[in-house]
Amino acid sequence: MRLRQRIIDFLFAPEPDAWLTLLRLGLGLQIIFYALSFRHDWNIVFAAEGSPFVSRDLTEAIGKIDNPLGPQIGWFIVLGSHLGLSEQMTLSILWLLLLGAGGALVLGFFCRSSAVIAWLLHLCAAQSGDFFAYGVDNLMTIGLFYLAIAPLPDRYALDAKLWRLKRIDPARLGFHRRVLQLHLCLIYFFSGLTKCLGAGWWNGASIWRALTRPPFDIIPIEVLASWKILFPVVGIAVCLFETAYPVFIWPRTTRLVWLAAILAMHMAIGLSMGLFLFASIMFVLNVAPFGPRSAIVARQHTPAEFWPTATAASLF
């Protein structure tokens, strides 16, 4: 019974909505950057014919085999054709809607609808472009899914000023934050664990390969060669920071250090490999649930609290 109560206390710890503001703002900006990064290629990439990639029809047909219920860009193309809109016109409208949803999220205007539209359109793009999707799409879907079901709007949203909505239950806000925190812990744990299983991450070979692999070879190979002594250290540090994230991100004494280390890692990935969208989504997903406020303000509930005291003491 005590354990059950502790779990409930942990999951529903009351929380102000500052984290939700950060998540909404961060994902809104992320959607804007995502849409802008696609601005020249959106219409041709998602065209049924004439795409420089693989045709959307083929990607969607293969996607439907495994996930027949998954939303696709093709749904909107069919809808648009019933309304007399050409494929290109419908694609342009979808792009503008996505950009608009990102802007609305930043402002906090029609938060819930904007979050759902952003999630749905991004999901459609990820499903219809599955052949050329990468990690950033997966992580954006995760963030937008949690935002779409979060207790919006937060107090800093335009909605809260315009419609004078009643305050959200802090326990509900705390629960949604916990879910995102726990999910992030699982992401880093499994990412770190899988890296630990490869010899290349212990001797620095994987760092070398990641930085010299086209098109991520932004830094000249001669410059990288002069840093060779750092690679094993960096490789082991990545394994350590990721695998131990679920342990060290919770105690108040280590949270800020671990968060700073993880953010530094993502910044380095963004700058040295050109993966800016990936770096920015990881910033948002880390800073919103584990951000500076929660690192500084003493937390009352950590996972250690529902473990036996001796175990918790030995861990922390």
Binding site: N67, T194, W201, S206
Partner: peptide
């Protein structure tokens, strides 16, 4: 459908175990 909607259809082994 649920897995894809929540973005949890795959693991998180980015560049792992080897690049």
């Amino acid at each position: 459908g649920y897995l894809h909607s929540a973005g949890i259809e795959g693991g998180y082994g980015f560049f792992a175990p080897n690049v």
